[in-house]
């Protein structure tokens, strides 16, 4: 059974954030997530990263919505994530929706 706690977050990439690539977006979201101090689930191996999966990638210069699943080591309150994450996202990335996938 999958013990990781998953939350699906919909974000909107707009403004100057359009000029940041998908790779940059992964970096931006991981650091934002780390700043929330929530119990992130990390990938295994020598170079652990915060695990996340995306439904698609936007082209450079394109604005739009992306769904991303964040993984946690334990249960995280949806509202708490909303409050903490929105405080830690840079200008140009807007939190649109949050839903718990399992739990």
């Amino acid at each position: 059974m999958d013990k990781r706690f998953k939350i699906k977050v919909t974000i909107r990439k707009e403004g100057i954030m359009r000029y940041f690539s998908q790779l940059d977006l992964v970096r931006i979201l991981e650091r934002a997530l780390r700043r929330t101090q929530l119990p992130i689930f990390f990938t295994q191996g020598f170079n652990p990263r915060a695990k996340m999966s995306f439904n698609k990638a936007l082209k450079l210069g394109e604005k739009g919505e992306i769904e991303v699943i964040f993984y946690f080591r334990e249960r995280v309150d949806k509202e708490l994530l909303r409050i903490k994450l929105s405080k830690n996202l840079p200008k140009g990335i807007r939190l649109r929706n949050i839903e718990i996938v399992n739990g």
């Binding site: 100057i16 000029y19 940041f20 690539s21 940059d24 650091r31 450079l60 210069g61 200008k91 140009g92």
Partner: peptide, 17 residues
Amino acid sequence: NWLNFQKPQRYLDSEWN
């Protein structure tokens, strides 16, 4: 239009902090 330049991220000011 920043897309005309290589690595436009260099010139944008949106860094955290």
